[in-house]
Structures are given as C-alpha cells and as structure tokens.
C-alpha cells in the first residue's frame, strides 16, 4: 500500500477546501450581482410603467372628448377647440414634448406644438403613448399621441442604478468575505476533527462508548475459559 506524506495529504485537503470556498464565494458574488441587476431592472421598469400609465390616462381622456364630439357628428379635423385642450393638458405634464391628434390616415391635425400640425405621425416611434379614437361603429377615426422626453426617464433610471449599486458593492464584498471566513472556520474545524480522530480518547462520545464496549467484549472473549462468556 502506498502511503502519502502528511504534507501531501494536507495539501490535497487544503486544495479541495480552498477551491470549494472560492467557487462558493464566486457564486455568492454572482447572485448578489444578479439580484441587484434584476432589482434595478424591475424598479426602472416600474417607474417607466407608472409614467406611461399616467400619460395613458390623459390620452384616454382626450380620446373620449373627441369620441363624444364625433358621435354628435363633428368630424375630428373640425374639432378646433382641441388645440386649447391639448395645450392645457401639455402644460400639466412637464415631461411631455407634445400631444398630437392624428386623423385616420395618420396626419397630425391638432397638436400642443403647432409646428407638428400637417406632419405624419410615426405610430411605431419610441417614447410615446397612443390612444385610439373610435366612432360609434368602432372604426378608428384618429389617434391621440403623447410624446414624452426619454431623458426624464433616463435620469430616474440612473438615480435608481446609482443608489442600488451604492448598496450592492459593499454587500457583495461583505458576502464574499463572509463566505471566505465561514469556509475557513469550517475547514479549520474539519482539520481539528481529523487530528482529534487520531486519538481514541478524543473521539466523539458515541465512538468512545462503542470502543469501550468492543474492548470489553474482546477482553471477555480472550479471557481464559472464555467459552460460556456470552451474556
């Protein structure tokens, strides 16, 4: 039988425990980083949703005004009082660039920004909220388009990102250090347990009790005239 040196044996165990702890510390760090990333994404998403939902409420209200007028026979292009409604609503929302009313072909007929009138609205453009305007037969007769400034959202997203990572970096470092410490303490305890196990007098209670019992039975068995020693 090949018997390795204690040094080699110790190195093998050290290598195993250090690698194990390193792998686990990496996992802990990765999980904290992922957690922060997902929390950041969730909060930024929640902020964007809240802002867009607010614009959607306003857009829907304007749509319903237009629909009521249309149901009385007033076509969208001739609802001239809308310009003032749009300006008033736009003034209430600091992050809005413009509120446009487009007809069924997409041409902007009214807007809180007068220079947009006559242009063609891009229905697929980002950073806008659209509410459809329908007539009594459910046909689309126009769109209310609220264009907002994405920089406002980006600013808040940056603030969320900064604040979360300010908490996350020390947490991440703490998790890694705690992992290494716990690993080191447990590995040390294992080493001490191995050393103790070399001496039966320092074995755990259950092992010591069994050893004493075995020694006793073996003594009985070896005693002269052991036949009949079974109890």
């Amino acid at each position: 039988m090949v018997v390795g040196s204690p040094l080699r044996s110790g190195l093998d165990m050290t290598r195993a425990t250090v690698s194990l702890i390193a792998v686990f510390a990496l996992i802990a760090a990765a999980c904290v980083a992922f957690g922060t990333y997902f929390a950041n994404a969730t909060l930024s998403g929640a902020y964007g949703t809240a802002v867009e939902a607010r614009f959607k409420v306003t857009a829907t209200r304007i749509s319903s005004i237009i629909e009521r007028a249309a149901s009385l026979g007033i076509a969208v292009p001739v609802q001239r009082t809308l310009t003032e409604v749009l300006r008033r609503e736009a003034r209430l929302e600091a992050d809005l660039i413009s509120i446009d009313i487009a007809d069924e072909r997409g041409a902007i007929v009214f807007s809180s920004a007068p220079e947009r009138v006559g242009q063609v609205a891009d229905a697929a453009a980002p950073h806008q909220v659209v509410s459809l305007v329908r007539n009594d037969f459910d046909a689309i007769i126009g769109r209310v388009i609220m264009r907002y400034d994405p920089r406002a959202l980006a600013m808040v997203a940056d603030e969320i990102h900064g604040a979360l990572w300010a908490v996350a970096w020390p947490t991440l470092a703490g998790a890694v250090v705690a992992t290494i410490l716990v690993g080191a303490v447990l590995a040390g305890a294992l080493r001490r347990a191995v050393r103790r196990a070399a001496h039966p007098s320092r074995w755990p209670g259950a092992a010591r009790a069994v050893l004493a019992e075995i020694e006793g039975v073996h003594r009985d068995a070896q005693a002269p005239g052991a036949a009949g020693g079974g109890r």
Binding site: G4, R8, D12, V194, A197, A198
Partner: peptide, 11 residues
C-alpha cells in the same frame, strides 16, 4: 482515502 492516507492512517 489514498490521497489523504497519511492523515487517515491513525483512524
């Protein structure tokens, strides 16, 4: 156990 035989030999 061969890898840590020296540590385990007493047990």
């Amino acid at each position: 156990g061969m890898a840590v035989r020296a540590l385990l030999a007493p047990i």
